[in-house]
Design a binder for these strands. Structure first.
Lengths: 150, 150
DNA sequence: GATCATGCAACTCCTGTTGTTTCAAGAAAC
DNA sequence: GTTTCTTGAAACAACAGGAGTTGCATGATC
């Protein structure tokens, strides 16, 4: 399957929302994410349930952040999306009778569990504010280059 | 998609092959793996190309190991399968213009790269012999329980 | 030459994200 | 109060990639 890009899309959207005055519509977000307003609403639904964002209908409605960027970690978003499956590889049978397969599963599952723990830990340490700061640095770098061109 | 179980299937098959006298047919392996001989041949093809196993046609033909279990790491098998995609999640766009998305990508890709490095390192450290030893321990444990039941 | 086994091509099936259409419902503007 | 804008939700098609399946060619052994 093509890979699940909901996490990165939501991060992208949330940071833009933070820099935007007032609510952003699904239509605006969809254009930014190069997709479709329905996909935006569907994906944002989980974040709304977790009160990371709020949505409002009607004129002037749309989506807005409900918390400061520094108060939202990548893990919060990952969880709000329903803990999407992390790995594309897995076991042939989760509870096999064959002892050989049990030994194989233990070896593979151990490694994947360690990798998953690492991902979860790192997602928990990084906030949206960290990413926004990195964006600011990238922006400053581009501006610096443009200035020196003149 | 349901997850890619080629790695665990191959590990399972290879250890059985090691404990088996003579070549094993795709049909025999397929029954063990609860699948189809064509799937076995298709998946084993990569291992044959890497000379981890060999195959022979005709009467008495089938598949046999080409190396000692201790000389084959999980990473060798993973590589022989063509480095299957490890993660189910990914970036929306690998090379975006938007600086916000670049910052998001950096954060997500960093974490995934660290997790992938961990998986690759651990796969490189574990050999088929390690798994076979674990199987022996499990087998001994079962035998021990059965003995004490009598 | 009959039989057994792999090699390979060409499908279909399955599963989960993504894309799309459609309509109901609520909120602001006029 | 009607129009307009927006989300909410259901329903379905598109797509991707592993898995399953069929059919047949090729080669080795009996």
């Amino acid at each position: 399957m093509r890979s699940d890009s909901r996490l990165s899309r939501m991060l992208h959207a949330l940071i833009h929302m933070d820099r935007h005055d007032g609510a952003m519509t699904s239509e605006q977000l969809a254009q930014m994410l190069n997709t479709n307003p329905v996909v935006v609403r569907r994906t944002m639904a989980g974040l709304r349930d977790q009160e990371i964002v709020r949505s409002e209908k009607g004129h002037g409605g749309g989506w807005a952040l409900n918390r400061a960027l520094a108060e939202v970690s990548l893990l919060d978003i990952y969880r709000a999306l329903g803990d999407p499956r992390l790995f594309a590889i897995g076991l042939a049978d989760d509870d096999p009778r064959c002892l050989v397969e049990q030994a194989v599963n233990a070896a593979v599952a151990d490694t994947l569990a360690a990798a998953e723990a690492l991902v979860i830990a790192r997602f928990g340490e990084v906030t949206l504010a960290d990413i926004a700061r990195d964006f600011d640095a990238r922006f400053a770098a581009v501006m610096g280059r443009k200035g020196s061109e003149a």
